[in-house]
């Protein structure tokens, strides 16, 4: 219990400190920090319109964050969410195009299974290389991002190109009837619900199942895990697979809910922002949900910041960088603040 309090206190403290630094940064650009923060709030959560914008951006972030968070629980730092999202979206689009005349329920299921499965295998390969060959998983997952994007570019300007898409080369459409619809009359699509459900499910797996516990043991001390006879290889590989599949699902949603076809929107940076969300949430799938909303909100307000204060779109990246560094710096305070520590039995 006290541990949860400690996490919340330190995370909030880090966020407050980053707000101060961001304010200082805004000040140097000649803007008024309070006005920019007000715009940030209005652009992210100020109206139903901006809420919709935030929610649409938060949906893929929840899923790509899992791609870093789940492997992190077994001790791997995987930053391949971007590539996994591309692989998931691309394979899903190919599936959708191939069977687009089938009933839309079947098309959707097939896209999710193929997209999630392929992306899962993509990150599983990273885990396998790490586990069996000691290849640094951070770098290999990053290289795979570039390879996935190259394959995507190769296919959308080549074999799979729809000649009708000149300015933004894309694949053929998966068909209007196979798209994910919006919730009610909002512009928020059901993909958000997928994201929420997957995060909740992963939280349940991580916190309430034997597998989740075994994963935490493996992440805590792999030699101890081996000693007590845990199937370490299986745990590592499955965690990577689940993380990759989640990011792949983000790609499927991007295809099926927004674009209707695969193109460069698949590598628009959701995978990289997801890394930040995962670290903010300290790799807890449940905490990913509010942080994905926060990050989605910051990104959603980028347009308003540009219009109202003439701040370039990179401003959002600066904010994210400051928050990320502050959160990491707060790590050094864990276990250091006296009144947040449980009373020791031996004093």
């Amino acid at each position: 219990m006290l541990k949860t309090v400690e996490i919340w206190c330190l995370s909030l403290g880090a966020l407050l400190l980053s707000m101060l630094l961001i304010a200082a940064f805004i000040f140097t650009t000649g803007n008024s920090p309070s006005e920019v923060f007000h715009s940030l709030y209005r652009g992210a959560f100020g109206s139903w319109f901006s809420w919709q914008n935030t929610l649409v951006r938060a949906a893929p972030l929840m899923l790509t964050a899992l791609c870093t968070a789940l492997p992190a629980r077994v001790g791997l730092i995987v930053i391949g969410g971007e590539g996994a999202m591309v692989v998931g979206g691309l394979t899903a689009a190919i599936t959708g195009i191939a069977i687009q005349d089938a009933p839309s329920f079947m098309v959707m299921s097939a896209m999710m299974i193929v997209g999630g499965g392929c992306a899962g295998l993509w990150i599983l390969a990273v885990g396998a290389l790490r586990h069996y060959r000691n290849v640094n998983e951070t770098i290999s997952s990053l290289l795979l991002n570039y390879i996935a994007i190259a394959v995507l570019n190769f296919l959308v300007v080549g074999v799979l190109k729809d000649p009708a898409t000149l300015n933004n080369p894309s694949t053929y459409s998966i068909g209007e009837k196979n798209m994910i619809t919006s919730i009610g009359d909002s512009s928020v699509h059901w993909g958000l619900v997928y994201g929420l459900v997957v995060c909740l499910a992963m939280w349940f797996v991580a916190r309430r199942t034997t597998f989740g516990f075994a994963a935490d043991v493996t992440g805590g001390n792999i030699r101890a895990a081996r000693l007590v006879g845990l199937p370490v290889a299986k745990i590592v590989l499955l965690s990577c697979f689940l993380g990759g599949a989640a990011a792949g699902l983000a790609g499927v949603i991007e295809i099926a809910a927004i674009q209707g076809r695969a193109n460069s929107s698949l590598n628009a940076g959701y995978g990289y922002a997801g890394i930040l969300v995962a670290f903010l949430a300290r790799h807890n799938p449940l905490a990913i949900i509010p942080y994905a909303l926060l990050l989605g909100g910051i990104q959603a307000s980028g347009g308003l910041l540009q219009r109202a204060h003439d701040l370039p779109d990179a401003t959002v990246a600066v904010f994210q960088g400051i928050i990320f560094m502050m959160i990491l710096s707060s790590e050094m305070l864990y276990g250091r603040i006296k009144f947040l520590q449980p009373k020791s039995m031996i004093s």
């Binding site: 930053i79 930040l276 370039p312 401003t315 990246a317 600066v318 904010f319 990320f324 990491l328 050094m332």
Partner: peptide, 28 residues
């Protein structure tokens, strides 16, 4: 940032990359 043992140097690297890229794009 990495001087403290509890701070992971790889994670700090990713954060620095994000931060420096943002700053460079902002002023660039």
């Amino acid at each position: 940032l990495c001087q403290n043992k509890q701070v992971n140097d790889i994670a700090v690297g990713i954060a620095m990359m994000l931060f420096a890229t943002g700053i460079a794009f902002f002023y660039g």
